[in-house]
């Protein structure tokens, strides 16, 4: 288990305890163990990334948090409510894996419809609708039916509907999938902006660069098990190694440095733990998990 320090209850936005999901077939036989005993605390104001290859249980986790799936065992507390409580949704925004929207509505109608599902006045709703449409850059397409939208546009309107209620907690399932590099950049900027507004963001992705850029903490899932959890910079540190960077060293000097290091009596220009890329870490965890299934690879990051 991870050795996380306990955060005060008030700042914990999402808490799962021993959360397990087993998919069964019609006869009740076990098909897939999609999630195994997940314990997770997500705190107010952080950007949390769920990372894992396809089929690792990221989406299952998000669906369990939202009450779209019922846990086989364990529990979820989200914004102080159980996952099945609909009132919690007033403060939640959710962008699904693909934007599942009504294709016969146009952008304005879509946002207006979702706005009507929240207790807000018509004036506020109208204001939010036009604000969000301009935020996601769809002013020119606001009257076009979604069936005519490109994938990127659909994604953006999907994001707008997730934010219609000005939520405190935002769950983004693969937010950058299907977006071009500029769209991806904008999405990341937006996530950081949401963070700056003090909102909590939970995102899942298999695109490592996205997670590395925006997330404060990540959890790596593999085959339904949480393999890694911690701050991004901590996780990427390689504790057993030291990196030295210098400028204009001669071969002799290098030899000397080696000696000096051997004698441990010199001034280093730069000395720190080198960081691997997240990709390395990720692939490393996956390969080790496959070699030794069920065993946690590392002790976990510390805050």
């Amino acid at each position: 288990m991870t050795s996380e320090s306990k955060a005060p209850e008030s700042t914990v936005v999402v808490q799962t305890k021993n959360l397990t999901k087993i998919y069964r077939d019609f006869w009740g036989r076990q098909k897939v163990r999609a999630l195994k005993a997940l314990d997770l605390d997500i705190r107010k104001g952080e950007v949390f990334g769920l990372l894992g290859p396809n089929g690792s249980g990221k989406t299952t986790t998000i669906k369990l948090l939202l009450g779209l799936l019922f846990p086989t065992s364990g529990s979820v507390t989200i914004l102080g409510c159980p996952a099945g409580d609909v009132t919690k949704n007033e403060r939640i925004g959710y962008l699904p894996e693909e934007s599942y929207l009504y294709r016969f509505l146009n952008a304005e109608e879509t946002l207006d419809f979702y706005g009507r599902l929240f207790p807000m006045s018509a004036a506020v709703r109208r204001q939010r609708v036009s604000q969000l449409i301009s935020m996601v850059g769809l002013e020119s397409a606001r009257k076009r039916q979604l069936r005519e939208y490109s994938k990127g546009m659909t994604r953006r309107i999907g994001l707008a509907q997730a934010l219609i209620n000005d939520p405190d907690l935002i769950l983004l399932d693969e937010p950058t999938s299907g977006l071009d590099p500029i769209g991806t950049r904008n999405m990341k900027d937006l996530i950081l902006e949401l963070k700056a507004q003090g909102k909590t963001v939970i995102m899942s992705s298999h695109l490592l660069a996205d997670v590395q850029d925006v997330c404060d903490r990540i959890g790596i899932l593999y085959q339904g098990e949480l393999k890694e959890l911690g701050r991004v910079e901590d996780l990427l540190k390689i504790n057993a190694e030291t990196e030295i960077r210098a400028e204009g060293l001669s071969e002799e000097a290098k030899e000397k440095i080696r000696k000096i290091i051997a004698e441990d009596n010199s001034q280093l220009l730069y000395c720190d733990h080198p960081t691997s890329s997240l990709e390395d870490l990720f692939l490393n965890i996956i390969s080790e998990s496959e070699a030794r299934p069920g065993k946690r690879v590392r002790g976990g990051g510390t805050d």
Binding site: L66, G67, L68, V86, T87, K88, N89, E90, I92, Y94, P96, E98, Y100, L101, Y102, R103, Y114, L117, F118, P119, G158, Q161, N165
Partner: peptide, 14 residues
């Protein structure tokens, strides 16, 4: 089938 229901039930809709 279109999973539009996901975006409905994740709103405060009973």
């Amino acid at each position: 089938k279109n999973k539009t229901i996901f975006t409905i039930v994740t709103k405060p809709v009973r």
